[in-house]
């Protein structure tokens, strides 16, 4: 270990201990297990700062935090899956003895041979771990992929295809069209006015139309077709821009969340 690394580690450890002591001290009047609470808050702050340190440069503290996060979240998901699905949903339907063991209310009347099928498929899926029986896991996997594809195909076709087509059926002259004379004599520029409504409908129609043309690969993009495809790519870029803007907002919200934690829960400089 290099000398600077050693010194840095020593400083970080010392700061950690100091923060733990101070935090535990400030919590001592509020909770009984203040030593643990003090440790948890300090540790959270330490992990937050470790991850943020990546902004300066990659370093061992960041790597530690990252690996810890990956490990803990994998374990957390596994435990949740086990307790909420296998223990709560499956076991009460399989056997009384097991339900009793896991302190679950058995569900009389729900014993069903069919519930053994997922059990068998689940065990087959675990065969992935075996070096020789790995091929067995392909069968349940095929079942999962097949059912998910079938389930999603119908839903997507309905919600993202047919419904979306019918959503583009907008009257290009608005719903209250009473002739061009009436339109100009009652011209209304407000957001709820007829002009804006008509413009919005045109944007929807042209956006869908030109966007689809951009993704039409069977014809070269020349002439009018090319022009429409140009408009299409502009529409796409505007969408991506909006998406980017939203992403920036989202990321800053996350930063606000972390900084609020550091200032409020750890340093206690805001209430």
């Amino acid at each position: 270990m290099k000398k600077t690394t050693f010194i840095l580690m020593a400083i970080v450890s010392a700061l950690f201990l100091l923060s733990w002591i101070l935090k535990a001290g400030s919590l001592s009047g509020e909770t009984d297990n203040y030593i643990l609470q003090g440790f948890l808050v300090t540790f959270s702050a330490f992990l937050t700062l470790s991850v943020l340190s990546f902004l300066y440069a990659d370093n061992p503290l960041y790597k530690f935090a990252e690996h810890l996060f990956v490990g803990v979240s994998a374990a957390f998901w596994m435990c949740m899956g086990f307790w909420t699905t296998i223990v709560q949903n499956l076991i009460p339907r399989l056997s009384d003895g097991l339900s009793k063991f896991f302190e679950q209310q058995p569900q009389p009347g729900d014993y069903n041979f069919f519930f053994f099928i997922p059990v068998i498929l689940g065990i087959m899926l675990l065969m992935r771990l075996s070096p020789k029986g790995g091929w067995i896991s392909r069968w349940p996997l095929a079942f999962i992929i097949g059912t998910t594809a079938g389930l999603n195909f119908v839903r997507y076709l309905r919600s993202d295809f047919i419904k979306q087509i019918s959503n583009t059926f907008v009257p290009l002259l608005g719903t209250e069209w009473q002739g061009i004379g009436h339109f100009f004599s009652n011209l209304d520029l407000s957001a709820s006015g007829q002009l804006v409504a008509i413009a919005a409908n045109w944007v929807i129609f042209l956006g869908v139309f030109c966007g689809l043309i951009y993704f039409y690969f069977s014809k070269e993009h020349k002439g009018a077709f090319g022009a429409a495809s140009k408009v299409g790519i502009w529409v796409l870029m505007l969408t991506f821009g909006a998406s980017f803007g939203y992403t920036v907002m989202g990321r800053i919200s996350l930063l606000v969340g972390r900084i609020t934690f550091l200032f409020r829960d750890w340093l206690e400089i805001i209430s």
Binding site: S159, K163, Q164, N167, T239, A242, S243, Y246, T247, M249, G250, S253
Partner: peptide
């Protein structure tokens, strides 16, 4: 979350 908000707009107002 903001990141996916633009992907929700096509579902307005019917869905």
């Amino acid at each position: 979350a903001a990141v996916v908000a633009p992907q929700m707009y096509p579902y307005l107002p019917d869905q």
